[in-house]
Simulated assay, not measured.
Amino acid sequence: MILYRVLFVCTGNTCRSAMAEALFRHRLEQEGIKGIEIRSAGVAAIPGGSASEGAIKALAKRNIPGDTHVSKPLDENLVRSSDLILTMTGSHKKAVVHLFPFAMDRTFTLKEFVDDDPTADIYDPYGGDDTIYEACARELEEVLSRLLQKLREHADN
């Protein structure tokens, strides 16, 4: 039974949001946490694309498959069916709220939600080398750990 739906959003849904989805899903599985559905989309995604090579490599280093990811454009159905929408940047948040004003109260940048810092973005590794993707994956892992802690606190209240 799905109790909570989290949607990660970036630009093309091939790097940051794709990695966040895979990393967070893996973390939930490792910890045996059920009832949280994780999805991702992009504000300018081309449907049916794969994750970027750098994202796939960064995930593979963690024994997480990334080669099965299929990019999805952000749409009203995804937004309406999400309890929490976490964007990688402030500009992604603005795009979501502009397109879907009804979701304003559940849309945050990832770092705004976990660290209460609305100005902090997750750096875009697109076009970078493997070290840039690895740095992004590490940053996401750290922030997603805090996200899990925050969701646990919310569930306890």
Rank of each mutant, 00 (worst) to 15 (best):
R106H: 10
I33H: 08
L74M: 04
E134L: 08
R39Y: 01
V6F: 06
D83Y: 09
V143L: 01
E53M: 14
S81N: 15
E142M: 13
T109F: 10
I46L: 14
G35R: 03
K34F: 10
K94E: 12
S82N: 02
N13V: 03
V9K: 03
G90Y: 13
L3V: 14
I2N: 15
E142K: 14
I38L: 02
I85E: 02
A55Y: 06
M104W: 12
I64F: 08
K94C: 06
D117A: 12
E37W: 09
I36G: 05
R62M: 08
G128L: 03
M19E: 07
F100C: 02
C10M: 07
P47Y: 04
A45Y: 01
V43T: 03
N13M: 06
M104K: 15
L84A: 01
A22N: 10
H154W: 14
S52I: 11
H92D: 07
A137N: 00
K72P: 00
A51K: 03
R62E: 08
T14D: 04
E53R: 09
I85L: 13
K61Y: 08
E139G: 07
R80P: 04
N77C: 06
P65H: 10
V79D: 04
S82K: 09
T131G: 08
L86H: 12
V9N: 00
S145N: 15
A41T: 04
E21S: 08
L86K: 13
P65K: 15
I2A: 12
L23V: 05
N63G: 10
R16H: 07
K34S: 11
P65T: 12
D129L: 11
K57M: 12
R27P: 01
R62Q: 06
L147D: 10
M1E: 13
S52K: 06
A135E: 11
E37R: 11
E134Y: 05
M104F: 14
A95S: 15
R27N: 07
G49H: 13
A137Q: 02
G127K: 11
A120Y: 01
V114C: 09
A41H: 00
R25M: 13
T14W: 10
V143E: 03
L86S: 06
E21C: 13
A55I: 07
S40N: 04
L151R: 09
A51G: 11
R39I: 07
Y133W: 01
S40V: 04
L7T: 09
I64V: 14
D129P: 08
L110W: 00
A20Y: 00
M104R: 15
I2W: 12
P118M: 07
F100R: 05
I2C: 13
H92P: 05
V96F: 04
D121R: 06
L7D: 13
L84C: 00
A58S: 15
A58W: 12
S71V: 03
S17F: 05
